[in-house]
């Protein structure tokens, strides 16, 4: 039977990976279209290989840690990452931070690629480096999320499958539309990932530090909705504050 924690693992890793893949796709498309498809795709492939190697090397080492130490480390990392995702998503939802605009980023990347000098006929180092760095940097945080989530449940394989499924989905849509995926609800996805990471971070962090949850694993069924409601309440309070500020200025 599929446990709630496994569902949480798959949903969190899939969404986190999909949203980062959308951002990486924009960079790969921009340098590919303006410089060299071959070098851009090669840079992307090498970065994906490096991320897979990182997962393969760190995964077994993490799972060999004692369970309480693992939960403490994993809980702490998930909380730090989750609170960052959640804070930015709340600020964007409240209108205090600009939304991620993939079309604008595509234009900026393409402009920078055109200004970077003459294109090399064969291998283009600029296209390779930008695509490699873009995919590696966007992917590194997802690797940590997948590893920490997966290692804690002894399911690094399942986390990797969710991550690969997200990348393949985004890549397939990207190939089909041949444009940045501007209509993907990135902030809603980041909000959901932030809520999941923070909730699991609270649960595992407390367990790793020696606490026992009332109701055991079922406590997650209370923690996740509470984190979501609290985050929505913060967004609403910020929106109200911003609107009041605008009225006062007028």
């Amino acid at each position: 039977m599929v446990s709630g924690q496994a569902v949480g693992l798959v949903v969190s890793v899939f969404l986190a990976c999909a949203v980062e893949a959308v951002e990486a796709l924009t960079i790969v498309l921009a340098v590919g279209a303006t410089r060299s498809w071959r070098s851009s795709l090669l840079g992307c492939a090498v970065a994906v290989f490096a991320l897979a190697a990182t997962t393969a090397i760190l995964g077994p080492r993490l799972t060999s840690l004692p369970i309480d130490t693992l939960r403490l480390v994993v809980g702490g990392l998930l909380l730090v990452f989750g609170l960052q995702w959640l804070r930015k998503a709340i600020l964007r939802a409240a209108g205090l931070k600009a939304q991620h605009d993939e079309e604008e980023i595509f234009r900026e990347e393409a402009e920078a690629a055109r200004a970077a000098g003459a294109r090399h006929p064969g291998f283009d180092p600029y296209a390779f480096t930008i695509a490699f760095k873009g995919v590696l940097l966007e992917g590194l945080e997802v690797v940590f999320i997948a590893l920490t989530f997966g290692a804690n449940q002894g399911r690094v394989g399942l986390a990797a499958v969710a991550a690969v499924a997200a990348v393949l989905t985004v890549a397939a849509v990207g190939v089909a539309v041949r444009a940045p995926l501007a209509r993907v609800p990135e902030n809603a996805m980041k909000f959901s990932v932030g809520v999941m990471l923070t909730s699991f971070g609270i649960f595992w962090g407390a367990e790793g530090a020696g606490a026992s949850w009332p109701g055991g694993d079922a406590a997650l069924l209370v923690i996740v909705p509470l984190v979501l409601l609290f985050s929505l309440a913060l967004t609403r309070a910020l929106r109200a504050g911003t609107a009041e500020g605008r009225v006062a200025e007028a």
Partner: peptide
């Protein structure tokens, strides 16, 4: 059995 309360309160405050 009482220690679990620390994390939710701390996280709410930190966020």
């Amino acid at each position: 059995d009482e220690a679990w309360i620390v994390m939710p309160l701390a996280v709410a405050g930190l966020l």
